[in-house]
Structure formats: structure tokens, C-alpha cells
Simulated scan of single mutants.
Amino acid sequence: MKPFLKYAAYFAIGLLLLAPLTFGDRYANLSIRMLIAALFASAFNLLWRQARLLSFGHGVYFGAGMFVVVHLMRANEAGLGVPLILVPLAGAVSGLLVGVICGFVATLRSGAYFSMITLAIAELIYSLGPRWQALFGGEAGISSMRLPSLGLSFAALNEVYLVVLGWSAIGFATIWFFARTPLGQIAFALGDNERRLQFLGYGTHAVKVCLFALSAAISGLAGGLLGVAAENVDYTVFGPASSAAPVIQTFIGGADILFGPAFGAALLTGFGNVFSDVTRLWLLYQGLAFVVVVMFLPAGLLGSLFTKKTILTRETIAKAVAALLCSASLIFLCESASILLSDSYSSLRAAHGASWVSYRLFNMEITPTSLVVWGLPLIAALIGIAITWKVRGSEEAA
């Protein structure tokens, strides 16, 4: 590992331990969400990085962990008495059990067929959510509360953060250790050439089921941790957004790096926390970042740092400039359109006799009727597209 990356890792570990305990509940809550998202994305990447199995339905196992943990917390309120520090383990067990059943079916196929089966399972559970009142609580969901145990009240998020940090460390250690076991090495070989493994006599379906079950168990653990932190859950946790999140986070961080998905998940969780208060279009920009990274940094952000072939060339700089121009123009145009189509702006226009009035965007006074306001972003986008076209042509010629 490069020296600056090693010191960056030490700094990140220190920040994980000290910052949430020092700066209060807001940072503790953000750190909890980042750790859980990182663990979930890393669990998803077990399938892709080792066996090249792309799951579009991992929200099922994450949601199963959440529901089981909240039900267990409700049972604690009735007098069951399970220590809160052990409650997230129930999420891992539920994820494992559901993962074995669903994984046995899904791994009968590979490639796009596997992905479609996982998506179909997720849609099936999502459609059952609002109808199965006893288990999922209908559209309202279910809720509970953390009870004191082991001398801790768990009323403050700082105490919950320590539980999340401890179980997340166990989850990450499990992922790291599994990659070094004989079964983990067979899973890598399965991703390279499944037919060759079958020819050598290995039961590839059993390997895929084991890998799927482990991935589902760690996903259930992540869901269980979120259930402890949030104290409520509803059926929307099985929705498409829950399954899409680890996919986006993994490929932004770097799917072929062990902790690349954790980096991508933490980065995008922090991005959402900051920009959701600034703009309503933050999900659009998250998708835009995903497109840009996949197009120009296919190894991901963290993966590019560890790729020896990553060299700062003239073509790389040109691509970065093109991406910056296109992204900036798209952001400006989308924000302007969002303001012009909003109800508050329509009311403002009505108060001024239906005439166009200026608005503030990025701390600038914008006049909608000005050609410069719409012309400059469009010109910037065209320049970015032209640069991309030119660089691609030169690369194909070479």
C-alpha cells in the first residue's frame, strides 16, 4: 500500500472512532448510516467481485434483517430480555435463512438470468409488503424502541454507534477472511470460468449457494443494525431503491477492490446527507456521478488509485474537462428548470402580473428571458461533447 494511502486509512479509522463520539448525535447518526451502507455494499460485492453474479434484489435480505430485528425488539418490550447488543445477530440469521432459500433458486442460472430472478424475487416480496399486515405491518410498518441492557440506556445515538461499529467490524472481517479461505478462492475461480470448475468436479451450484447465503447474511446484519438505529421499518425497504443503492455505491467506489464498495457507500451517503438539504434534485446528481464514473473511471474512484496503469495523460485530462463541462451545464439547466416549474415561482409570477421575474441560483441573480442564461450552459455542453468525440476518435485511430 502506498504511504499516503496507509496514513489515510489510519486517519479514517481514527475519525470513525472519535468523531461521532465527540461531535454529537447528528454526526453519530451520519456515521451510523455510512457504516451500515458500507457493510451492505460490501456484502453485495461478495457476489460480484468473486463469482461475477450481479444481484438486483439484495434489498430483500437487508429488509428481512430490519423486520426481524424490530420484531425482536418488540418481543423485548413484552419481556423476552435479549440484550440489545446481540439483537443485530438475529438480522444476520434471518438474512442467512432467506438467502439460502432464494439463493438456491436464483443460482440455478447465471448471467442476466440470475439477475432477473433476483429482481423478480425482490418485486414479489415488495408486492406482499402492504398486504401482509401481521408480518410487515401494512403500509404503516412496525416500530419499537431500544431498551436498556448491560448497564447502558442506548437512548443516545453515541451508544448505538458503538454497537453498529462493533458489528460492522465483524462483518468486514468476515468478508476479508472469506476471500482467503479455500471456498473463497473457489468462488474467484467460478467467476473466471464456471465450466472449467465443473469439468474439474466441483459442485458449482453448491458454491454459489454458499456464497449467496453469506452475502445475504451480512446484508441482513446491516439491515438489523439499521433496525436498531431507526427503531422502525416499513415495506418500502424492499423497494427498488434499496436494491439499487449497493449496486451504484459498489461501482462508484470500485467493485474489484475489497473495500471499494465501502468507500463508495460512505461517500454517497455523506453526499446525500449534505445535498438533500440544498437541492431536491440530489438523486439526479447521484445518478449523474454514477454515469460519469462508469464512463471515465470504470475501475471506480478507489479502484483507480490502486490501478498501476492509471496515468495522468492528455486524454485523461481532456475527458475530465469534458465531464466537468457537461455535468456543470446539466446541473445548471436542471436547477433552473426545477425553479421555473415550482409552485412558489408560479405564485411569484402571479403576484407580478404573470411577468417573468428573476430568481436566485448558486448565489446569482438569474433572469429567465436572458439568452445568456440558457445559451452558455448549452454551449458548454456542446464543447464537452465535442471534446469527448475528439478524444474517442484519436483513441480509436491509435
Rank of each mutant, 00 (worst) to 15 (best):
Gly201Thr: 13
Ala322Phe: 04
Met364Ser: 13
Trp132Ile: 10
Gly59Lys: 12
Trp167Ala: 02
Ile311Leu: 04
Phe332Leu: 07
Gly171Thr: 01
Ala12Glu: 00
Ser243Ala: 04
Lys309Met: 15
Val163Glu: 10
Gly141Cys: 05
Leu124Cys: 09
Ala120Ile: 04
Ala381Ile: 11
Gly384Glu: 12
Ala244Thr: 15
Asp256Glu: 12
Pro261Lys: 05
Ala386Asp: 06
Leu39Trp: 02
Met295Val: 13
Ala318His: 11
Glu365Thr: 15
Val70Glu: 06
Val69Lys: 02
Val357Met: 14
Ala12Met: 02
Gly171Phe: 00
Asp234Asn: 07
Gly287Glu: 07
Pro182Lys: 08
Gly171Ile: 00
Leu39Met: 03
Pro20Trp: 15
Tyr235Ser: 06
Gly300Leu: 03
Val357His: 14
Leu89Gln: 03
Phe212Cys: 10
Gly300Asn: 02
Leu221Gln: 09
Cys210Thr: 09
Val93Pro: 13
His352Glu: 10
Tyr113Ala: 12
Ala92Arg: 02
Ser144Glu: 06
Lys319Thr: 06
Ile248Phe: 03
Gly99Pro: 09
Ala245Asn: 05
Tyr113Cys: 12
Arg180Gln: 02
Ser394Phe: 06
Leu35Tyr: 02
Ser127Gly: 09
Leu190Cys: 09
Gly14Thr: 12
Gly81Met: 05
Ala216Ser: 12
Phe11Trp: 05
Leu5Gln: 11
Leu162Ile: 15
Ser358Asn: 15
Val68Leu: 14
Thr316Pro: 15
Ile252His: 10
Glu139Asn: 05
Gly260Asn: 03
Ala266Thr: 05
Gly393Asp: 07
Gly260Arg: 01
Met34His: 04
Val237Leu: 04
Phe114Trp: 09
Asn193Gln: 08
Glu365Asn: 11
Val209Gly: 00
Leu197Ser: 14
Ser219Phe: 02
Gly384Met: 08
Cys102Tyr: 10
Val100Ala: 12
Ser144Asn: 15
Leu330Tyr: 05
Leu128Cys: 13
Val278Phe: 09
Ala189Phe: 08
Gly14His: 14
Gly111Trp: 06
Ile186Thr: 08
Gly201Asp: 13
Phe178Arg: 10
Gly375Glu: 05
Gly79Phe: 05
Gly129Gln: 12
Trp374Pro: 09
Gly264Asp: 14
Ala230Lys: 11
Ala216Asn: 00
Phe23Cys: 00
Leu5Tyr: 14
Ala64Lys: 15
Tyr345Ala: 03
Leu302His: 01
Asn45His: 13
Ser94Trp: 13
Ala155Leu: 00
Ala179Asn: 12
Leu348Lys: 09
Ala289Ser: 10
Gly300Glu: 01
Val93Asp: 06
Trp282Asp: 02
Leu333Pro: 07
Gly264Trp: 07
Glu365Lys: 14
Leu96Asp: 05
Ile117Pro: 00
Phe238His: 13
Ile121Trp: 11
Leu226Phe: 14
Ala266Glu: 01
Pro246Arg: 14
Ala78Pro: 03
Ser346Arg: 09
Ala206Met: 08
Ser215Ile: 10
Val82Leu: 01
Ser219Asp: 00
Leu267Phe: 11
Ile387Pro: 09
Ser115Asp: 07
Ser370Met: 13
Arg360Tyr: 00
Val105Cys: 06
Ser143Arg: 14
Asn45Glu: 13
Phe306Thr: 10
Phe212Ala: 07
Phe11Ser: 03
Glu335Val: 08
Ala289Gly: 05
Glu231His: 08
Ala397Ser: 03
Ala90Val: 11
Met295Ile: 10
Leu53Thr: 04
Ile186Trp: 03
Met66Leu: 03
Ala120Phe: 03
Ala386Glu: 11
